[in-house]
Design a protein around this nucleic acid. Structure first.
Lengths: 202, 202
DNA sequence: CTCTCGATACTGCCCTGTGCAGTATGCGTC
DNA sequence: GACGCATACTGCACAGGGCAGTATCGAGAG
């Protein structure tokens, strides 16, 4: 039984296809790029490459800076082949974990102040991320220039997502201000809001 | 040491604040509502309510349909208090797991056909979800009518998210068709695309 | 020249959460 | 009376997260 290859395995294989990395560099790089759409704890990024080596998809080399060792990983031809084949497989559905939305959804268990505070935090988070994305987009020279086209479409997705959340948070804040309470929207017409969504044609 | 209360604990507490549920009903309901922004495996939804009972946040009652038993959960006053306080706490950052985007990001390890197939799958998934959302929005009478205002803003968020993904997938597909290859965008100007993002002002 | 501090480079441990197989019973329908 | 789908769970192995702990290296402060 070969150990199962997870999407995380293939994601790291993808980075290794770009260049060699030490685990530490890999961890930093994941934070900057993959983290946006495939977030993984640093802890995991120390285990996973070892599994790739076990499976012959990568090799590891031990280097030293004085007394301190470090491990450099390099993809193998088999690793490249496995990555290429994986690109054909149907991807898992996109999943979103949005704790703030849970708080919004159950806002009727609390006060309007709590709800507005949550919405403000959502807005601030989205705005912060948009700032980070525009900064990345503005960085010159472009890191990994030969992959600039892929970075560009990736950044674009992230931007569209964050912008959707930002616009939603602002819109919702305005609606909530018209409510009498979290349990009572007063004159605000929930059915009309649902009707508007129901009319959508893609 | 009290067992830690996760966001999942509070999410289920939120559902129990709406009405009593059997575990099975809870699992179905989570699939329809929470699953959009707090997806959890059915398996977990059988464990978690037991923990709520241990902590005095819910009570359980054993009922029977013939020989077959089932457990009905009900929130306690303390459960309601805990939920109310949780609404004040800063939410965890939103996280997205988007395997298809990993495949897009490393598309230069494969062919344009693979990339286009992935984009088509993304588009189909988003379109399917939008259809599900509009159907939910059109359902009359509105389920849990006294919570229609919260459903409406929740559905709106989901719609905005899916629409962003859908528009991105279509846009990206058009761009990719202009490339020579996954490794070579030809005349397509990646720097210009990055510049456009860099110019964004929120 | 030493001390501190942040960056580098990991490992162990316990917990949450997933997926899948397995085990029942209830109920409608052919 | 058999079949299939819904109901109602449990066990188990594994992926993944968070945090604490352990070192070394290199640059700058004093």
């Amino acid at each position: 039984m070969p150990p199962t290859r997870t999407a995380t395995s293939h994601a790291l294989l993808g980075l290794l296809a770009v260049r060699d990395w030490t685990t530490y560099e890999l961890a930093k790089q994941v934070k900057r790029s993959l983290n946006w759409f495939w977030p993984r704890a640093e802890r995991k990024l120390y285990d996973e490459p070892k599994r790739l080596v076990e499976q012959g998809l990568a090799t590891s080399a031990r280097e030293h800076t004085g007394q301190r060792g470090r491990t450099v990983y390099r993809i193998t031809d088999e690793g490249r082949a496995v990555l290429r084949e994986w690109l054909s497989e149907p991807p898992a559905p996109r999943t979103v974990e949005f704790e703030a939305m849970v708080k919004v959804f159950f806002a009727d268990a609390g006060t309007p102040e709590q709800l507005l505070a949550t919405l403000e935090r959502v807005e601030a988070e989205a705005a912060g991320r948009i700032a980070a994305l525009t900064e990345m987009a503005a960085t010159r020279p472009v890191p990994f220039a030969r992959r600039a086209h892929l970075s560009a479409i990736g950044l674009r997705l992230q931007y569209e997502q964050e912008d959707a959340v930002l616009r939603w948070a602002r819109w919702t804040r305005e609606q909530v201000l018209q409510w009498n309470d979290t349990t009572d929207p007063g004159d605000w017409d929930a059915l009309a809001a649902l009707d508007e969504l129901a009319r959508v044609r893609p």
